[in-house]
């Protein structure tokens, strides 16, 4: 029980830290942050419109108030879900923008990650089960090789080969011009077609980490005394591999899954940008290039909170999977 309380405590503390970090980032630069931001917006070709001005002011809080008062206002705004207006997509609010982009990312990333985790864990377990065999070297060397390929480069090559040269799949976007988002068959099949290449790009490199992690963990657990004793007891090989190898070796991967989600969002930014996919990652990059600070801040906060929640869920799952957890050190 103590374990769950501690994990919950850590969740709340990191949440607070992330919110605070989000507050501090725009204020790190010297001088008045609002002035600095406005000055940089003015440096842009287009003139600063009142909407932008208002948005920046709102984001940074009252200018004359001290830092603490600003912080207080900021916390209040976040608790009530007021992230302000996006000025590159005026008149949409930041919340609306995120709401539109979220399902795209959630489905693409959610599906590919679960598949990657499952495939990677299985392949890794298989390699460990057949340690030092041909299967093992093919899996290990193969994943090492693929792991060295830059992810975004693979994505570019996929477009080059399958979209442009062979013309099998669309080059980018979330759906074609002929359909519009809605509960129609046309839209879903179209969206599916558009998501194949990004998904493949994510799936090529996705399982690598899980394969190597699982293999190494399982090679170790199978070398432990309990696995050797299981062999001495005449347990079937498969049984040993599952209950005395994989079952224990998978535990660090479960915690790893949540931590990986953080890194994974990075991949999302790249893949969504390359494929022009209408998800959160592309939105973040657009916000950065348009200097849409309110949107940028909200997106960062949003993704961080998402990762924290996933982490907390993984911790809870881990607690159920590992009976030793009360002794385990906080990760």
């Amino acid at each position: 029980m103590l374990y769950f309380v501690r994990r919950a405590g850590f969740f709340v503390a990191t949440l607070w830290a992330a919110v605070t970090l989000n507050f501090l980032i725009p204020r790190i630069q010297p001088g008045d942050p609002a002035q600095a931001l406005l000055a940089r917006l003015q440096g842009n070709t287009q003139a600063v419109n009142p909407v932008q001005l208002e948005a920046v002011r709102k984001m940074l809080g009252t200018q004359d108030g001290n830092l603490l008062a600003q912080y207080w206002d900021y916390l209040g705004a976040i608790c009530t879900g007021q992230f302000g207006v996006s000025y590159s997509y005026y008149p949409y609010t930041v919340t609306e923008m995120i709401g539109t982009a979220l399902p795209w990312t959630l489905i693409l990333v959610g599906v590919t990650q679960l598949v990657s985790f499952a495939v990677g864990t299985l392949l890794g377990a298989w390699a460990a089960y057949r340690r030092n065999s041909r299967v093992d070297s093919v899996i290990t060397l193969g994943s090492t090789f693929v792991g060295t390929l830059p992810f975004f480069w693979i994505a570019l090559l996929l477009i080059f080969v399958f979209a442009i040269t062979l013309n099998w799949f669309p080059e980018g976007g979330g759906y074609g011009g002929g359909s519009s988002p809605g509960w129609s068959w046309l839209f879903f099949s179209d969206a599916f077609q558009h998501s194949v290449l990004p998904a493949v790009a994510l799936l090529i490199t996705g399982p690598i980490g899980w394969i190597i992690g699982m293999r190494n963990n399982m090679v170790q657990t199978l070398g432990e005394d309990y696995a050797r004793l299981a062999r001495a007891r005449g347990l079937p090989r498969r049984r040993i591999a599952l209950t005395y190898g994989a079952r224990i070796a998978i535990l660090p991967n479960v915690t790893g899954f949540a931590i990986a989600l953080g890194g994974l969002l990075g991949g999302t930014v790249l893949v969504e940008t390359i494929f022009n996919y209408p998800g959160l990652g592309r939105l973040l990059l657009e916000a950065v290039s348009n200097k849409d600070y309110p949107l940028m801040q909200a997106l960062f906060l949003f993704t961080t909170i998402g990762v924290l929640i996933a982490n907390f869920l993984a911790d809870v799952t881990y607690g159920f999977l590992d009976p030793r957890v009360r002794r385990a050190e906080a990760v």
Binding site: I259, G262, G263, G266, V269
Partner: peptide, 20 residues
Amino acid sequence: NLGLVIPVLPLMIVLAGYAP
């Protein structure tokens, strides 16, 4: 632990985005 759970690339992008 905080450094481990904060999504790295988004943080990089945001930091790079603010940099003058």
